[in-house]
């Protein structure tokens, strides 16, 4: 019964030790607190020779555990590690430092340089893109200005052409009107002249008809004879 109780009491104690051992001591010696306490317990058990008695003392006098714990937790020097640790740690540091200097640093530096170069390149590209964009914008604005100028010029030309066409049409219309007036006047004058000529011809016809009738009435045999005689004298050239 007592062994069983001791085992039951030892279980949490071992769990505590395992916890302390795996949790790691604050010491830099590489030995955990658990393992230290276990070593102390083993030494105590070897000194007394009876596990139950040791457990009983630990159960009655809790200061023993506290003593173990304080003794195991406290490192020999909180600052200066063990010599071998310094050696191994220094060697490892040196190796790691050399590796870092020889391999890691150039790689990191190369990566950083590449990164910086990439950033610089990206910045240059961005600057170039900005310049290109400004150039495009300037070109667009120039084209827009040219388009506005061209549109304005076309409008002015169209207006000038329209004015010219309007002026030409007005001039042509005036010329046509003048031509029509001139033709009308000419036709009127021609009609007037023709009417006068017709009237004159008509009057002449009437007058000549009357004269012919008068002449015929007056041309008796005596007059005919005188006309013939006068003709003969005229042909002979003796009519003076």
């Amino acid at each position: 019964m007592t062994n069983r109780r001791n085992r039951l009491l030892a279980a949490p104690l071992l769990a505590l030790l395992a916890l302390l051992a795996f949790a790691g001591p604050a010491a830099a010696s590489g030995e955990s607190v658990g393992s230290c306490i276990a070593e102390k317990l083993e030494e105590l058990i070897e000194e007394s020779g009876d596990l139950d008695e040791v457990l009983h003392e630990l159960h009655v006098d809790t200061s023993i555990g506290d003593h173990f714990e304080k003794k195991c937790i406290e490192a020999p020097s909180p600052i200066l590690p063990e010599t071998n640790e310094i050696i191994w740690g220094g060697a490892a540091f040196l190796i790691l430092f050399v590796l870092m200097v020889k391999k890691g640093f150039p790689a990191v530096k190369g990566a950083m340089d590449a990164r910086a170069e990439k950033i610089r390149s990206d910045l240059d590209a961005a600057e170039q893109a900005r310049v290109d964009a400004q150039s495009v914008q300037s070109d667009y604005e120039a084209r827009l200005a040219d388009a506005k100028t061209e549109a304005s010029r076309l409008i002015d030309e169209g207006r000038a052409d329209a004015d010219q066409v309007r002026t030409g049409l007005i001039t042509q219309a005036e010329a046509d009107a003048a031509g029509i007036r001139e033709r009308a006047a000419s036709e009127s004058a021609a009609a007037k002249a023709q009417a006068i000529a017709d009237l004159r011809s008509e009057v002449a016809g009437i007058a000549l008809g009357a004269a012919e009738r008068v002449v015929q009435a007056s041309l008796d045999a005596e007059v005919q004879g005188r006309l013939i005689d006068a003709y003969i004298d005229e042909v002979a050239g003796t009519d003076g």
Partner: peptide, 13 residues
């Protein structure tokens, strides 16, 4: 007479 004188006048002319 007129015929003769006319013939003579034509001859003259």
């Amino acid at each position: 007479d007129q015929s003769e004188r006319l013939a003579a006048a034509i001859n003259t002319r």
